[in-house]
Amino acid sequence: MATLAKPTDAPELDTGSLDIRPMTPAIGAEIHGIDLGAKDTANCIPEIRAALLRHGVIFFRDQDLTQEQHIAFARHFGELEIHPATPADQPNPEVLRIVHGPKSKGQENNWHSDVTWRECPSLGSILLAREVPEVGGDTLFANMNLAYERLSPKMREFCEGLTAVHDIARVFARRLGKAPEELHEKYPPMRHPVIRTHPETGKPTIYVNTGFTSHIEGLSDKESRWLLAHLYATAADPEIQCRFRWKAGSVAFWDNRACQHLAASDYFPERRAMERVTIAGDKPYFRKGE
Rank of each mutant, 00 (worst) to 15 (best):
M1C: 12
M1Y: 14
A5R: 14
A5Y: 08
P11R: 14
P22D: 12
H32R: 15
A38W: 03
N43V: 05
N43C: 09
P46V: 13
E47G: 04
G56V: 08
G56H: 01
H70G: 06
A72N: 05
A74D: 01
E79W: 09
E81V: 06
P87K: 14
A88N: 10
Q90D: 08
Q90F: 13
R97G: 08
V99E: 11
G101R: 13
S104C: 08
K105T: 11
E108K: 12
N110D: 13
E119S: 13
S122N: 15
G137C: 03
G137Y: 07
A142E: 01
L146D: 00
Y148F: 11
R150E: 06
S152F: 06
S152T: 09
V165L: 12
H166C: 11
R174D: 13
G177W: 07
K178Q: 14
E181R: 09
E182K: 15
L183K: 04
E185N: 07
H198T: 07
I206S: 02
I206W: 02
I206Q: 05
H215D: 07
E217F: 08
G218N: 04
G218T: 06
G218H: 08
L219K: 10
L227A: 11
L228E: 01
L231W: 06
Y232G: 05
A233M: 07
T234M: 13
P238E: 03
Q241K: 03
C242W: 04
A248G: 03
V251P: 04
D255P: 02
R257A: 00
Q260Y: 00
L262P: 00
S265N: 12
S265Y: 00
A273I: 02
E275N: 08
I279V: 15
Y285W: 07
K288D: 00
